[in-house]
Computed example of a mutant assay.
Amino acid sequence: MKKYLFILSVLLISFSCWHETKVGSKRTAPIRQKPKTTVTYHFEKTKDWLAATTDSAQIKIALALNRTDKKNIVKMDSIMVASDMTGDIAYYLPFPLQLPSLSEVPKIIFFSYATQTFGAYEYGELVRTGPTNMGRKSDQTPTGLFFTNWKAEKTTSTFNDEWDLRWNFNIANKLGVGWHQYELPGYPASHSCLRLQESDAKYLYNWADQWVLKDEQNVLVKGTPVIVFGHYDFGAPKPWYQVVRNPKALDITAAAIQKQTTPFWAVIISQQRNRERYEAKP
């Protein structure tokens, strides 16, 4: 009996290794260094804070907290910073580190309209998070389930041929919506696309899967699932400033993500199995 149990265990382990190899090996999650102390938030004069801060990791956190980039942060009179900026960026943004309900999903990306942040997960582990500036009031980003389609390292905006978009990855082909690098003024300002800092746009560009086309009119295999959710109150103060009063005010719980994912679960799993079958072919 023990012999048979041992053989069964070997087979199960072999199947698990085969499954990860065929679908795509799980990447090592980034080291998540916790802040040394309890984190609170406050405002500083931008010019003074930048003059006193040379640590690139702390500057990166400040950019994320204010949903902006290096070009635009200097235009702000004051910025929100953390009392302790010694931790990994994931500890200062709202997405949870683990999503147990998605432990079987190789890759998925979430964009939160309300918090203007994104979270990319591998098998339920957060592997990348950062700020985004989504669609402005007159050109709001559509919400719901999408899949990554085609990508281009550099392309031209359909709104203005003078706008060069770097690391562009389309998620809604007919609507022309996707993520790409472009300046982040610190509020929803795009023409419905998902603006990102260049490092984040490049990471997701290389990380997410493209679609596979059967022919010019038909998709054989869809790309990485992307869920855009939530609403932005354009008439209210920037919502991330709420953490000055309550550091947990914007936290997105695993249960909240599961609620957003549940209506699309059957489609996500169906497309995942379709990709597995495609990649398993010799």
Score class of each variant (00 low, 15 high):
P35C: 13
N66E: 01
G87S: 07
S14I: 05
L97G: 14
L50T: 03
A82T: 02
A64F: 02
G24S: 05
S14W: 00
V23S: 11
S14R: 00
Q58H: 01
G87R: 13
I61K: 00
H42M: 06
Y92G: 06
C17I: 14
I31F: 10
D48T: 13
D84M: 03
K70D: 04
V23I: 12
F43D: 08
A82S: 07
S16F: 10
I59E: 09
K36I: 07
T53H: 07
A29Y: 09
L50V: 11
C17L: 15
L50N: 05
M80K: 13
V74R: 14
Q33P: 01
S16K: 04
K36Y: 07
L93E: 07
L65C: 02
K26M: 15
A82R: 02
K70V: 02
F95A: 05
A51H: 11
V39K: 06
T86H: 07
W49L: 07
W49E: 09
T54V: 13
S16P: 02
W18V: 12
Y92P: 01
E20F: 15
H42S: 11
T46E: 12
T28E: 15
T86D: 04
I61H: 03
T40S: 14
T68V: 05
P96F: 13
H42L: 06
D55I: 01
F15S: 12
D48K: 15
K75H: 11
K70S: 09
I61D: 02
R32I: 04
V23M: 13
T38H: 13
R32V: 09
F15Q: 08
V81I: 08
I59T: 06
K36E: 05
K71Y: 10
S83W: 11
P96Y: 14
H42E: 11
I73E: 12
T53I: 08
S56T: 15
G24D: 05
M80W: 10
P30Y: 04
S16Y: 05
L97W: 06
K45C: 00
A52I: 11
A51P: 04
N72D: 11
Y41F: 15
H42G: 07
L63A: 08
D69N: 08
I59H: 11
I89N: 06
K75I: 05
N72G: 06
K36P: 02
D88H: 11
Y41D: 09
K45I: 03
A29S: 15
S16L: 05
H42A: 06
A52Y: 11
A57Q: 14
V39Q: 01
Y41E: 06
I79Q: 03
C17Q: 09
K36V: 05
W18I: 14
T53P: 02
Q33D: 09
D88Q: 09
Y91L: 13
M85I: 10
C17D: 05
S16A: 04
T37A: 13
L63Y: 02
T28G: 12
R27L: 10
F43A: 00
I89R: 07
L93F: 04
C17W: 03
F15L: 15
T28A: 15
Q33E: 07
T38P: 02
A57Y: 04
T38K: 09
I59S: 06
I59F: 01
V81G: 01
A64G: 14
V23Q: 09
I31H: 11
D55Y: 02
T46N: 13
S14A: 14
S16R: 08
